[in-house]
Computed example of a mutant assay.
Amino acid sequence: MKFLRVGAPGFERPAVLGPDGGVHDLSSLTGDLDGAFLAGDGIARTRAALAAGELPKTPKLPKPPTPARIGAALARPGKVVCIGLNYRDHAEETGAELPAEPIVFMKDPGTVIGPHDEVLVPRDSVKTDWEIELAVVIGARARYLESDAAAAECIAGYAISNDVSEREFQLERGGQWDKGKSCETFNPLGPWLVTADEVGDPQALELRLWVNGQSRQHGSTANMIFGVHHLVRYLSRFMVLEPGDVINTGTPAGVALGLPGNPYLRAGDVVELEITGPNGSLGRQRQSIGQA
């Protein structure tokens, strides 16, 4: 299933795409797509309600950039945990050694915005960068997990994430990655939360990103250094993962930091992202770049 949130910022309504492609309102089941919904067996309840014909259809969603808005695929993540240098080709393009263990940092959950919302270049920024990533959405409490199988059971689903970064803030202002990752609008998420059963193997997905129509990133989750299930299990040894938490699992090569001339983002640029796999697409994002 594909879950989404529709409406103006702060007024999104939860919805799900039915087997017929129709958009069904979930307001009778939940106030929003959040940790409480996932912890309360919301996915199974939605599946049952769809099968019983209990969820009303809403008007078909127009495609962006029309006025109808799709919000972030998840409301109010408890935390956004990020993994750095998790693709071999990305580590190579930045001149970094392959990590022996996952590199972990946190991102302000307030950075999460809709997949087609405007991304703002921060004031005084000269090195705002793009990063397409597979986002993992936690659906059950994960604490000291002992196996990858146990980790898989804690995953509600997946979404596209743009882990926007300001490289000067990240690397040249004291080496504190959070500063370069937590600026406002720096984490478009969605358009959908696609359930884990529909995605299938998370290590068989193709990631693509374009800037102003030019292909910049084209990678595969098969090239992750640490796979999705390993990451969930690993993180559960250092922190408790709760329903509604998000894990950004790293980005493949092709970021501005590693490209000749470092073509960082400027106001007026347009970034598009897509993740696809054997079972279909996780959707597509499109962001116009503005100035804070």
Rank of each mutant, 00 (worst) to 15 (best):
H90S: 08
R88F: 14
T66Q: 08
L74I: 11
A96S: 02
L55S: 11
T46K: 08
L61C: 02
A49C: 14
M106R: 07
E93W: 06
P102W: 06
R123G: 12
V81Q: 02
P64R: 06
F105S: 00
R47T: 11
T58R: 15
E54G: 01
G40T: 06
L61F: 14
V112L: 12
D124A: 14
P102D: 05
V104R: 07
L61Y: 07
P99K: 09
S125P: 04
T94F: 06
L55K: 08
Y87A: 00
E101Q: 05
R123N: 11
R76I: 02
A75R: 08
R47V: 13
C82S: 11
A72Y: 03
Y87M: 10
I103H: 00
R47Q: 15
G42I: 13
D89P: 05
P65D: 09
D108C: 12
C82D: 05
T66W: 08
A52R: 13
V81S: 13
Y87L: 11
A91H: 10
G84K: 01
V80L: 15
P122K: 02
E101S: 08
I70T: 14
A68I: 09
G84F: 14
A72K: 14
L85A: 11
T46C: 14
P56F: 12
L55R: 05
A75Q: 05
T58P: 00
A52V: 03
E97C: 01
P99N: 01
P59D: 13
A75H: 02
R45V: 00
G71E: 04
G114I: 13
G40Y: 05
Y87V: 00
L120N: 04
E93C: 05
L120P: 10
G110P: 07
K79Q: 14
P56H: 09
T111Y: 06
G84S: 03
L74S: 04
L98S: 04
A49R: 02
P122W: 07
K60D: 07
G71D: 10
T66G: 03
A49F: 11
E92S: 03
V104A: 03
I83K: 02
T94L: 15
I83M: 13
L85N: 03
G42A: 06
L50C: 10
P77I: 13
A49Y: 14
N86A: 08
G110A: 15
F105M: 11
G95V: 04
V126P: 00
T94N: 01
E54R: 15
A75M: 07
K79E: 00
G110T: 11
P115V: 10
L61K: 03
E54S: 13
T111P: 04
A44N: 10
G71R: 01
P59G: 12
K60T: 14
M106C: 09
V80K: 02
R47W: 08
T94Q: 07
P65E: 07
K63A: 10
D124K: 12
V81H: 00
P67E: 09
D117K: 08
V81R: 04
P99F: 09
A72W: 03
P64Q: 04
P109R: 10
E101W: 12
A91L: 02
N86G: 11
D117P: 09
D117C: 03
P59A: 10
G53K: 08
V80N: 03
G84Q: 10
D124V: 14
E101P: 00
E97H: 09
A68Y: 08
P62W: 07
P64A: 06
K57M: 09
I103C: 07
E118H: 02
E54V: 02
A73G: 01
A91V: 01
D117Q: 04
